[in-house]
């Protein structure tokens, strides 16, 4: 990928317990999470995480609860200190920063949206949004003026003087989002930001985020346990399990080629026809028939177009030019849910 690496996580370990450094030696010696807890009474939070997060993309980090995803995101702005490893932001190691450099990073470079909103209950909406700016020492009037733009942008105009407790969950998270955006930080950390919302409002907020991202091009690191959400907004997905990284890559790739049972269990219930794109399945360079489909079309839409000529491959277009062909059989194979044998062994559910 040609993009610059914005955040780079290298060999990151986190052990919780009374003597983490000693326990870490056992991890280096090959002990897993379960053994470490049983034999040494330490919890392995993160186990050798390596992720490079490119600039201006949405990196989703996924996992079930207890997989260490919230711990991982807190290492990026050092709300939690790791036991070993490196976290580089724009090439600077966050872990070597002194307190004032770290404050600077948190104030100007990285902002965060929280699962439980974490708004200041004693501040009005506009004071909450201006919070990050006020911490930077910008005086109140200017901070409010600058934050007003973001209040309008997330659709909370008219609620400036309300207190968070007077708003619904979805609106509170809009405040949280506006607060994070108001500091103009280029990295946005979102810790299960939409998980506490109702499904409809969640979709709504995802739309808001995608819309904003199309315009702002921030580097977003998004934590979620919801695969549909991950597939919807993620440019890249990393899947965590028991503190270790299981698979990372393009959403298409993860759906088509799950690395192990854990991942295939994860993707079993998704709507493959809607997630998978034509470009992931086409035979590049081959010639197709009369029916034309765009390479970024979802499979279910492509199937609609191809249903009248099932025996003839469709031509795949990119920017109006033919780049390959898509066979109906391939398409149906891809949409088919993986057989229970391959995606069974329901140990993780």
């Amino acid at each position: 990928m040609s993009q610059n690496i914005k955040v780079s996580i290298k060999n990151l370990y986190k052990v919780f317990g009374s003597n983490p450094t000693e326990a870490l030696q056992h991890v280096y010696d090959g002990l897993g999470k379960v053994e470490l807890l049983a034999q040494h009474d330490h919890v392995l939070g993160l186990n050798n995480i390596n992720i490079d997060i490119p600039e201006k993309r949405v990196q989703v980090i996924m996992g079930l609860s207890g997989s260490g995803k919230s711990t991982l995101i807190r290492h990026l702005n050092r709300l939690i200190d790791p036991t070993a490893g490196e976290v580089e932001v724009d090439g600077v190691d966050v872990l070597k920063m002194n307190p004032s450099a770290l404050r600077d990073l948190r104030q100007k470079k990285m902002s965060m949206v929280f699962q439980k909103f974490a708004l200041m209950p004693h501040r009005t909406v506009s004071d909450n949004v201006a919070y990050g700016l006020m911490l930077q020492g910008i005086r109140r009037g200017e901070a409010k003026e600058r934050s007003q733009k973001w209040i309008d942008r997330v659709g909370l105009t008219g609620f400036e003087k309300s207190y968070p407790s007077q708003l619904s969950g979805g609106m509170q998270q809009r405040v949280g989002l506006a607060r994070a955006l108001a500091t103009d930080a280029d990295i946005l950390l979102m810790d299960e930001a939409f998980s506490a919302l109702d499904p409809l409002i969640r979709t709504d907020m995802q739309d808001v985020l995608l819309e904003l991202q199309a315009e702002l091009n921030k580097t977003i690191i998004f934590i979620t346990h919801d695969l549909d959400e991950a597939l919807r907004i993620g440019d890249d997905i990393a899947i965590l399990r028991d503190g270790g990284l299981v698979q990372q890559g393009d959403p298409q790739e993860i759906v088509l080629r799950p690395i192990d049972e854990y991942v295939s269990d994860f993707i079993m219930d998704i709507n493959r026809g809607r997630v998978l794109k034509v470009r992931s399945l086409m035979n590049a360079g081959e010639k197709g028939g009369k029916v034309e489909v765009d390479q970024d079309m979802a499979l279910e839409d492509a199937m609609q177009k191809m249903k009248d000529t099932p025996n003839e491959p469709a031509t795949v277009l990119k920017d109006g030019k033919a780049v390959g062909a898509l066979d109906m059989r391939v398409l149906i194979d891809a949409i088919e849910r993986p057989a229970p044998e391959t995606a069974s062994g329901n140990v993780y559910r």
Partner: peptide, 27 residues
């Protein structure tokens, strides 16, 4: 004072004094 709120003030880079007078004491 709720942990999330304190964590949020950390995440936005508040100094102890800012946190004390802006968040902890009011709450």
């Amino acid at each position: 004072v709720p942990f999330e709120v304190v964590e949020a003030s950390h995440a936005f880079g508040a100094t102890y004094i800012q946190r004390l007078f802006g968040t902890l004491i009011p709450l």
